[in-house]
Design a protein around this nucleic acid. Structure first.
Length: 362
DNA sequence: AATGCGGGGGC
DNA sequence: GCCCCAGCATT
């Protein structure tokens, strides 16, 4: 065993606290590399409580990485539906196929090979390698940055990549070499249940005596998170377009990358004005459908307004239903039953729910 | 270094 | 509304 003379004085108290207080999680029961990898991908920018039901569905459908590697992207996206950041699902499938083809169906054991996998960055590589194989690399996520910034009263913007790198370096040299996975999980667990972003529970903190921010009464002011507001606002007309027989709805599969890539969508037209006058919507939709799509709408009706917030953009959607025998570009007719089979992101699930509500009220 | 990329929970 | 969440890929 490698002794680490630079070890943090608070490490033993942290590990002891973690042993007693860690929350049970499905990927902690049987800690296979596959479970650890899958859970870490799902947990990127996503809360534990949100992930758990998705994790159960995935391991039930794909008990081993070999099963996942043989799946279609459509099936993986359907299972991922609603979890967000869909490039994670696309990269998950790619990485599974790499593991089967090049790594004997398991997660590679070196940092270099791990980082070469699609969807694996410094955080996830360190997390999986430390927890599955005991490789002493620090997994630095938002929790760890917050805990470390407070412990050391770090006055740097933790959203700067350079700051993250410095924290990674500091933790790498001082983290325990014998239980790196427990250390990483303990840091994250402390950030998740004690060292909270707002109103942290310092009275319950096992390493409060070692916290410089607490000593300085600056816990609430740290960490520094300075970011620019990049949100943009967009307005759309969303068409719920059915054929004359009423059996199908017009929809399209998004391009394979980009926003909501590979998922399904209803045809939309971006509009500049804010349409406070619902009565003018049907005529506007019909006019724009001719101008942009060269198709004629019958019985256009205003259904309602929806709002959806992404992390970087705000959508206002005016939903219009109509009948047509013609399809907007790149669209196809989906039988109604297919709407629950194809992967639709939350924003279009809202459209479907709105249509269901209208049907129920008529 | 900056930007794009979901959705939800807590306040 | 705002903040933040077990971040990564691309440019």
């Amino acid at each position: 065993m490698t002794l680490n003379n630079n070890e943090f004085p608070w490490t033993p108290a942290l590990l002891q606290w973690f042993e007693v207080n860690q929350r049970p999680m499905p990927w902690r029961q049987t800690s296979t590399p596959y479970y650890r990898w899958l859970s870490e991908i799902m947990l990127q920018q996503t809360r534990v409580d949100t992930v758990i039901p998705y994790f159960h569905r995935f391991v039930e459908r794909f008990p081993r990485v070999e099963h996942l590697a043989e799946a279609s992207e459509d099936e993986v996206l359907k299972l991922w539906e609603g979890l967000g950041y869909y490039s994670r699902a696309r990269n998950l499938l790619k990485a599974a196929r790499v593991m089967v083809a090049e790594h004997q169906g398991t997660f590679p054991a070196t940092e270099k090979e791990a980082l070469a996998l699609p969807g694996i960055g410094p955080y996830s590589a360190a997390a999986v390698l430390s927890m599955a194989y005991g490789v002493p690399l620090p997994s630095v996520d938002g929790n760890v940055l917050r805990v470390y910034a407070r412990l050391t009263a770090l006055a740097e913007n933790v959203l700067e990549p350079a700051t993250v790198k410095r924290v990674q370096g500091a933790l790498k040299t001082a983290m325990p070499q014998h239980r790196p996975g427990d250390f990483n999980e303990a840091m994250m667990e402390l950030g998740a249940v004690i060292c909270l972003p707002v109103s942290p529970l310092c009275q319950n903190c096992p390493i409060q005596d070692h916290c410089e921010a607490h000593r300085q009464h600056r816990v609430e002011q740290l960490p520094l998170r300075i970011k620019k507001d990049r949100t943009t606002r967009h307005h759309y007309l969303v068409m719920y377009l059915q054929n004359a027989a009423g059996t199908c709805v017009a929809a399209q599969k998004n391009p394979p990358s980009g926003l909501l890539g590979g998922l399904w969508a209803f045809p939309m037209m971006e509009v500049t004005a804010d349409h406070e006058d619902m009565k003018a919507l049907p005529a506007l939709a019909a006019k724009e459908a001719v101008a942009r799509w060269q198709i004629t709408l019958q019985q256009p009706e205003a259904v309602g307004r929806l709002r959806h917030v992404f992390s970087h953009r705000h959508w206002t959607m005016w939903v219009v239903s109509a009948v047509s025998e013609e399809l907007p570009p790149a669209c196809e007719w989906l039988p109604h039953a297919e709407l629950s089979v194809k992967a639709f992101p939350e924003v279009y699930q809202k459209v479907m729910r709105l249509m269901d509500e209208r049907a129920a009220s008529i």
